[in-house]
Write a protein that binds this DNA or RNA. Structure first.
Lengths: 153, 153
DNA sequence: GCAAATTCATTCGTATGCAAATGATATCAA
DNA sequence: TTGATATCATTTGCATACGAATGAATTTGC
């Protein structure tokens, strides 16, 4: 190894971090891009519903009537966000609201017949969306990726 | 095996999908949650800047003066979004705008001295944010995860 | 060299997403 | 029982995020 190589190595050792922060390689940045891509794929398949709206309908279909807050925690939305989502679904006649008989603080949310029809029609399409989102990966890679992604939650 | 078991199996075979759409296992849903978690970690370390604002500053620090649109494509933001981000950074004195001498359509963006100081202070913290986001994974898992995540972009 | 197409930036409208504050109701604890 | 706490929902304010429409400036294609 020459003296110049030693000098180079020394300089690199002194400042390994300062000069090479690569935004494009940070997990947060790529996570944001991957999420953007998924939303775009979703919109291409389901134009008249957003992913959060779909999530709300799918979860209501799964668990039946629940309170707005409870639904929010099931689909990872805070109270303010879930309220907006439910308001818009209600305006379109896909869900209906009612007051909890015992606990007067709670606002119960449920699918309407139309909402139930809608989500049942959409679930097969949602499977395609998942498939297309994961299309760049092999079956084995999908399994690995989903396992690790779930660990980050 | 009883006749009832056969019937059950037949019904299941006919509709393998209808009855078991699990929102919590869909890549889009988990991606959204993982992104939310990252943003929350980011906010805990850097309270006075959002991830998109940080991305803009970091990229400007990297490439120097660029047009607003060019910056947007470098950090994966459409024109409308990047405008809002830059407007807010400008209002805080972290970036400055100027007109392109030749191409009068372009609006050039550059760091101010204050913006340069800020991003250089923040980069080490950003490394910690990346580390904390990936903390649930081992070093080997991180490498695998980042490789697969990048494939989805 | 000029009309058509493209690019850059802006604006508008809609939809998350979250912090913080507020009011109503329920629950807990002394 | 009642006073302190906690929970549920709402509202406000701010910050992405993107489609679509618009206008100004540039580039292309013939």
């Amino acid at each position: 190894m020459s003296g110049e190589d030693n000098l180079l190595k020394l300089v690199e050792a002194e400042e390994p971090d300062e000069n090479d922060y690569r935004l494009q390689e940070q997990v947060g940045f790529i996570l944001r891009k991957a999420h953007q891509r998924h939303v775009s794929i979703f919109a291409a398949h389901i134009a008249d519903l957003t992913p959060p709206q779909f999530a709300a309908l799918a979860k209501l279909h799964d668990v039946g009537e629940t309170s707005q807050n409870q639904l929010g925690s099931l689909i990872a939305m805070d109270a303010a966000t879930v309220k907006g989502v439910i308001d818009r679904l209600k305006a379109r006649g896909l869900v209906e609201l009612s007051k909890h008989e015992v606990d007067k603080r709670r606002l119960l949310v449920n699918l309407t017949a139309e909402g139930r029809d809608a989500i049942e029609q959409l679930i097969p399409i949602a499977r395609e969306i998942t498939e297309e989102t994961l299309a760049p990966l092999s079956a084995k890679e999908v399994a690995t990726f989903m396992r690790l992604l779930a660990k980050l939650t």
